[in-house]
Design a protein around this nucleic acid. Structure first.
Length: 433
RNA sequence: GCCCUGGUAGUGUAGUGGUCUAUCAUGCGAGCCUGUCGAGCUCGCGACUCGGAUUCAAAUUCCGGCCGGGGCGCCA
């Protein structure tokens, strides 16, 4: 056995007993006749204290190891007020499981901070840092909240193909790949498939989906491979029903994150749970407000980065960090978006702190209208035959949204670079690790 | 795709044509030290992104490649 206890799981009951701990050597402080070895595991750190006089061989063995080597140590757990954990371990036996090469390409607890590029090149070490462990623990918690909430609302989790024959929606660039003798693409989103499922009777579906986008953007808020909560629901009256699911989902994710006190403390963050329902602002009103603040936005345009930020400020003055922008102009939304009158659509975005984190709509379920909209958007209905077929044999009214997980984490934890929110980011130039 | 900007020891940096045998910190190695927890002290190790050009002289100026960082467009 390599481990009987994690560092944080040791309690007073374990004092004066022999326990086994395992992990990475974070630091060795050799004072001469006594040495302190800081051992790190997933839950924190603990201190091993060795006396030279008591066990010269063990002292030599431990203090000559390199930082970040992996060991398992059996020893007596002693209460000691001088130690931060309140206890220390007096080793009796050490198993060296792996010796780390020196020098490290990246220090885990060094005083000099490395560039993000260097960190990503050595991500396996970078992820040993407490802050990064905290980010991904919270990521896990919010994804758990997604499953918990959506399943409680009768949604079922689905998985749609990522290798597809035609581009999902047009608009964005897609990655091409060889599929035996054919050409195929990586899915930019599950849009067409989750809509097809609305004709299957499954009614309410969601997917933690991969998005692959070949756009050559190079910003702190874009990835070429990202994840999203993609959802679709049938028999809706209007997009308001979809927005209602979305705001409750976000609320539950935010709430679950706020319960991760330890991780939030490590990240030096306080999270206050937003109030429901979120504010709604129609697109026209948003444009008016922006124009009042000297934005050059014109009706019909999508909000630029500055506009999004400015609207975020305006809404914050009103005391809200979450808000839906509704009734977008039809021309600025994808072909499958349900129209409302001539100019408007039933499409919406959800913004948080001045950044769009989700967008959705009621969809068109009438096949004729759908084909018309495709043509209006310069798409060829022939390229979407499998999709259109699903609308011809009984398709209920439906709607849904896509909701970026990394974007959400960025806003939740006020992280500046989206790459911090995914284990191994893929961007314009990075393909490894 | 467009615009701006950078590349110096393992890591992060100083350096604006000669005084660079290249600064400092951290790291690594050796030594001293019985309560460290950003341990301390002594000694040592270790670098100018690549190719070309200008010049008596280039880390420093110019051109190109490669690799980063930031902003915009677009989006999640």
């Amino acid at each position: 056995m390599y481990r009987s206890h994690y560092s944080k799981d040791v309690t007073k009951k374990d004092y004066n007993k022999s326990i086994t701990v395992a992990g990475w050597i974070e630091d060795i402080r050799n004072i001469g006749s006594i040495a302190f070895v800081i051992l790190r595991d997933r839950k924190g750190t603990l201190q091993l204290t060795v006396l030279k006089k008591k066990n010269p061989g063990l002292f030599e063995k431990l203090t000559s190891l390199s930082r970040e080597s992996v060991i398992s140590v059996k020893g007596v757990c002693k209460e000691n007020e001088k130690v931060r954990n309140g206890y220390e371990i007096l080793p009796e036996g050490v198993k060296v499981l792996s010796i780390a090469k020196t020098p490290l390409p990246l220090g885990v607890v060094d005083k000099v901070e490395a560039d993000f590029d260097t960190r990503l090149d050595n991500r396996f070490i970078d992820l040993r840092k407490q802050k990064n462990q905290a980010i991904f623990t919270i990521r896990n918690a919010v994804i758990a909240a997604v499953h918990e909430y959506l399943r409680s609302q009768s949604f079922i989790e689905v998985h749609t193909p990522k290798i597809i024959a035609s581009s999902s929606e047009g608009g964005t660039d897609v990655f091409k790949l060889k599929y035996f003798e054919k050409e195929a693409f990586l899915a930019q989103s599950p849009q067409l498939y989750k809509q097809s499922l609305m004709a299957s009777g499954l009614d309410r579906v969601y997917e933690i989906a991969w998005y692959f986008r070949a756009e050559e953007h190079n910003t702190r808020r874009h990835l070429n491979e990202s994840t999203a909560v993609d959802l679709e629901m049938a028999f809706i009256n209007d997009e308001e029903e979809v927005m209602n699911v979305l705001e409750n989902l976000v609320y539950n994710m935010w709430k679950r994150a706020s319960e991760r006190k330890n991780e939030l403390k490590i990240l030096d963050k306080e999270i206050s749970v937003p109030e429901l329902p979120f504010a709604r602002i129609v697109y026209d009103e948003a444009v008016n407000k922006l124009q009042d603040r000297n934005s050059s936005i014109e009706w019909g345009q999508d909000l630029g980065t500055d506009d999004e930020r400015l609207l975020g400020d305006i809404m914050k003055e009103k005391g809200t960090e979450f808000y839906f922008i509704t009734k977008y102009p039809l021309e600025s939304k994808p072909f499958y978006t349900m129209s409302e009158g001539e100019k408007y659509s039933r499409g919406f975005d959800l913004a948080c702190k001045g950044v769009e984190i989700a967008s959705g709509s009621q969809r068109i379920h009438d096949v004729k209208l759908l084909e018309e909209r495709m043509k209006a958007c310069n798409l060829n209905p022939k390229d979407f035959e499998f999709y259109l077929k699903a609308f011809k044999y009984g398709m209920p009214p439906h709607g849904g949204f896509g909701f970026g997980i990394e974007r959400f984490l960025m806003k939740l934890l006020d992280i500046k670079n989206i790459r911090e929110c995914i284990l191994f980011p893929r961007d314009r130039t990075r393909l490894t690790p």
